Amino acid sequence: MIRKYLDLIFYSTLGIVVAVYTYFTVKTFLPVNAYIGDEVWYPTAAYNMLKLIFHVSPPMYFPYPTGHPGICTFINICHPPLAKYIMDIFILIMGYSPLAWRIPSWIIGDLILITGFFFTREVLGKDLIGNLGGIFTAVILASCPNLWVLHGTAMLDIYVAFFSFLSLYFLLKNKLLLSMIFLGLAIASKEPAVMLIFPALYYIGEIEKRPIKRAYLGLAIPALVYIIVSLPIIIYVGGPLAWLHAKIDNTVIWDVSNGHISLNAVTQISAPWDWFLNIHPFGMGHGFYANVNPIIMILWAVTTPIAFIMKNLKMIITTMFAWSEWLGFVLVYILGNHTQFSFYVTDFAPFVDSYVVIVLFTIARKFYIRKEEKNVKENYSGGIS
């Protein structure tokens, strides 16, 4: 009975956190009746997909951005289409407007907080410490400046963050098939999630000893999901070979080049190691910046060895999910892409934020248990004497 009331208290607290987050989201982003940052590309591509691929033209209550030649037919083939499909659902219902294309990101932002609570509780346990850790994770996620800006706008990274976070959650619950489906959805939102295949395969190898099944789960399922999501684009560009050629030209070459922005825009560009100190946070316009919390980032780096020292597999996989994506950005930097941005942190921010809470609560629990054991021994010794 006590457990039931405690759960009710923590669920209610989580509900309050999510409600407050939603309120400030709407209050902050609803009044901005303009394109924010890269919204000039993604909502327009979403609308053009409806128009050119699905032959549906919802009413346009907001104009295309000016100063972008070819924007009326741009479908953003250099990035996977899932996030744009989700935007399309709301554009179909509400017409083309900032509110329509931002609402799914707002919903996903709330869902990330909820996922953070249950994820942390899954790792720490469903006791008082686990529930407290879950609430702390939700609060840390809500206060993450990178997630805040990216969840408020219609960009792709918040979709990667959400689907990959769900993938990790179900992975640690040993629901491997469901986890790999969500990993496929993350990859179908944006390419950085591809790096998560490596830590996922490692964890699957700890659970499933048959190599064929490991390959089926860790490689075939995400690839199949990605292809299914991409089918409309594959058909539109003229078939698998044309699509592969387009992906090489528009994704692989693009990802390892400096074409994202002029190298002279030094205040907008930040290398992956700069993110730990919030150097050159990306300016989104309208007073928004994709800031990074250096305290959380440094705590993540400093405490990562603790997961290995404790030999806690769930903690190890959580931090390695974050490091894998970060190392992916380092790799493309080495290959030639020196025009990277601080908002890429959003892709792996849920792993970082939740890991920091989990490791600190784990340390606190260990300290508390040892203190209690010491008190018991002292009392026992005193009783004997």
Rank of each mutant, 00 (worst) to 15 (best):
I197L: 14
P199F: 10
G205H: 07
I197V: 15
L219G: 04
L185H: 06
Y203P: 03
W243D: 03
A186D: 06
R210Q: 12
I233D: 13
S189G: 07
Y226K: 08
L219Q: 02
Y216C: 07
L219Y: 02
R214P: 00
I204N: 01
F198Y: 13
P232I: 12
I233E: 13
I197S: 09
A200S: 11
A220R: 04
K247R: 13
M195I: 02
I234C: 13
I234A: 10
L217V: 07
P199E: 07
I248G: 01
P240N: 09
V237M: 13
A246T: 15
I221E: 02
A242W: 04
I234G: 09
L241I: 15
G205C: 05
I248R: 09
G205D: 00
L224F: 13
L185S: 03
E208Q: 14
L219V: 14
V229H: 05
A193H: 03
S230T: 12
Y216F: 12
A188M: 08
L185W: 01
A246Y: 09
I212E: 05
G205N: 07
G218V: 01
A223S: 06
L219M: 07
M195E: 06
A200P: 00
A200H: 02
E191F: 14
G205M: 06
S230I: 06
P240D: 06
Y236M: 14
L224A: 15
V237S: 11
S189R: 10
L224R: 02
K190Q: 06
P222V: 01
H245Y: 11
Y216A: 13
H245Q: 14
K213C: 01
H245E: 12
I207V: 12
I212D: 05
L217M: 14
P199K: 13
I248L: 08
F198K: 11
A220K: 05
I248Q: 05
G239H: 10
G238V: 11
P199C: 12
F198P: 01
G239W: 09
S189A: 11
G218Q: 04
K209W: 03
K190T: 04
I234E: 04
A193N: 01
L217T: 04
R210A: 03
P240Y: 10
L196D: 07
P192E: 12
P232L: 15
V237G: 11
I187L: 08
A215K: 05
A215I: 14
P199D: 07
L196W: 03
K247M: 11
P222R: 02
L244Q: 13
A200C: 05
A186M: 07
P232E: 12
S189P: 03
A215S: 11
R210L: 04
G205P: 01
I227F: 10
P192V: 09
P232K: 15
P192M: 12
A220C: 14
I212Q: 06
G239R: 12
V225C: 06
V225N: 00
V194W: 13
P240K: 11
P211T: 08
I187H: 02
Y202A: 08
I221R: 04
A242S: 14
K247I: 02
W243T: 03
I197Q: 05
V225S: 08
